[in-house]
């Protein structure tokens, strides 16, 4: 079974995603790339902040938190079941 790409902000906690597209632009795009939010890379949705936002992601064995403004512009496909 395959999954349609969804924004990371909508992927539930605990899911592993393969990134497909980054729609963020400018310096923030550069920063995201440097941190490993690169199309093709695999990330895991770890944990929401107590107030729901930001969300922490596991990328390249590091934990990075993003606000929904950015994570809603990063797209990925769910991996596995």
């Amino acid at each position: 079974m395959t999954f349609e790409p969804i924004p990371l902000s909508e992927a539930g906690t605990g899911n592993k995603m393969r990134l497909t597209r980054i729609e963020v632009t400018g310096v923030m795009r550069r920063r995201l790339l440097d941190l490993g939010f690169v199309p093709g890379n695999e990330i895991e949705v770890l944990q929401k902040s107590p107030l729901g936002d930001p969300i922490a992601f596991r990328v390249n064995n590091t934990t990075i938190a993003l606000r929904s403004e950015e994570s809603s512009l990063i797209w990925g496909k769910r991996l596995g079941g």
Binding site: R31, L66, R67, E69
Partner: peptide, 11 residues
């Protein structure tokens, strides 16, 4: 506009 944001949570 609130500027973009990334925060690393180190181990």
């Amino acid at each position: 506009v609130p500027t973009h944001y990334t925060l690393e949570l180190p181990p």
